[in-house]
Structure formats: structure tokens, C-alpha cells
Design a protein around this nucleic acid. Structure first.
Length: 201
DNA sequence: AAATGCGCCAACCGCGTGCGC
DNA sequence: AGCGCACGCGGTTGGCGCATT
């Protein structure tokens, strides 16, 4: 198990200075080598020569966080493409659908929703959507299966394809998987392609 | 106005996995 | 093949702010 092995590292909320320091590190070296970022009050804990260079440059002095903490802070907050603010209805719907299909695979779900992190989605689920989902489960007559049946029969009677599903998923610019969110037998195929997409990422 | 409860979110922790040696 | 390191993931917790009493 990973233990960054230091009892005197900073914990808790990040300061603006720490954020700036971390951002500088990432700007210079990219979002990797998190272990290298772990620095103990001026005495650098390093495993890589990059850090020695950074010491010489005076770039990251003062940051006293474990690598794991640095990585998390970057991924969930400092990353430029992180979208802040409320989830849209479309995003919420997508999370619900994906969760039904693949469960608590937050990182997979996050990759499907541009700008959202796994942690953010997980929090949002626990805070908002779990209740919603439980409520749905408690409505005996409106089980998921029944909903699917209803949708099926509606589609059959309409004789139309269900292209109404909002498309906010990442990588959909080319319209590669508009059919993905149909509640239909092809759902399984979509899951399959979804997972295949994962392998490409 | 103060005390308490509750919800939300950022961050931490433990475990699993991949990769290099 | 085995070991250790580094990273990624999901569950959990701590603290803050808002609502209610």
C-alpha cells in the first residue's frame, strides 16, 4: 500500500500559494511524477533528477504535500479543463444512465463527461442522485424494466428512432455513438463500445 | 440571537494494478 | 519470476456553510 511515509506533511485544505506552486510544477513538467512534488519544508524529498533541477531553479520551494495529495488537487481543482458549477440536466441524466449500466465506476463515468472529475461526480451522486435513484426504486410500478417497456412500446407505436437523447458526452463531436443512450437492446452494445473506448483513452 | 442539525464538497485513506528493475 | 515503487480508483471522513428550531 502506498504510504508516503512522512508524518509531518501538510494536510487539509490547500492554500493559494500551494496551488500556485503546484501549478508551476505541472506547467514545467506535466501532470506526472507526483512523488517528486512531495517536498518537506525546503528539504526536498526527491526520487528524480527533475526535482534537483527544480530546487536549483527555486521553483517549488515550500510545498509540503505528499504526491498523492498533489495529484488529487491537480486533477480535481487546478486542471484547466475542470468545469466548475452546477451539473446540467443532461449531465445528470447521463450520470444516472451510466451508473445504472456500470455502477460505481466513477472514473469511467467521468471520462464520458468532459470537464467533470470522478470525485465531483461521486460527490454529486452521493449528494443528489442517490436519493433520486432510491426514490425511483421505491416506486413499484415504475421499475426500470417497466420504464424500458414503456419506452419500447412508445417507440414502436411512433415508429421513430429515439434520437432525442441529449448529446453531451465527450468524443461525440463526430456523432459516433448517438444511439448509445437508447434504452434498448443495443444498450449492451453501447456498454461494449463504451468500454472499448476506454481502452483507447 | 444562539444552538443544533444537515447537506455538500474537498481531501484523505486503503487497496489494486501496472511497470520497471 | 519476484519485488518495490508510483499511480489510479473508490470509499470514507472532516469541516464549512446554510437551514431550522
Amino acid at each position: 500500500m502506498e504510504n508516503d511515509g512522512n508524518t509531518s506533511l501538510n494536510k487539509g485544505a490547500w492554500s493559494a500559494d500551494e496551488d500556485a506552486t503546484l501549478a508551476q510544477y505541472v506547467a514545467l513538467h506535466g501532470p506526472k511524477r507526483w512523488k517528486c512534488v512531495a517536498i518537506k519544508s525546503g528539504l526536498f524529498i526527491f526520487t528524480h533528477t527533475y526535482l534537483v533541477q527544480m530546487v536549483e531553479m527555486g521553483v517549488v520551494a515550500g510545498l509540503n504535500r505528499c504526491g498523492k495529495s498533489c495529484r488529487l488537487r491537480w486533477l480535481n481543482y487546478l486542471r484547466p479543463d475542470v468545469k466548475r458549477g452546477n451539473f446540467s440536466d443532461a449531465e445528470e441524466d447521463l450520470i444516472l444512465r451510466l451508473h445504472r449500466l456500470i455502477g460505481n465506476r466513477w472514473s469511467l463515468i467521468a471520462k464520458r463527461i468532459p470537464g467533470r472529475t470522478d470525485n465531483e461526480i461521486k460527490n454529486y451522486w452521493n449528494a443528489h442522485l442517490r436519493k433520486k435513484e432510491k426514490l425511483m426504486e421505491k416506486l413499484p410500478a415504475i421499475s426500470l424494466a417497466a420504464m424500458k417497456e414503456n419506452l419500447w412500446s412508445e417507440e414502436a407505436s411512433n415508429g421513430t428512432e429515439s434520437q432525442e437523447t441529449e448529446d453531451i458526452g465527450g468524443g461525440n463531436e463526430d456523432g459516433d455513438d448517438d444511439e448509445s443512450f437508447d434504452v434498448s437492446a443495443s444498450e449492451l452494445n453501447w456498454v461494449k463500445s463504451f468500454l472499448e473506448l476506454e481502452e483507447d483513452v
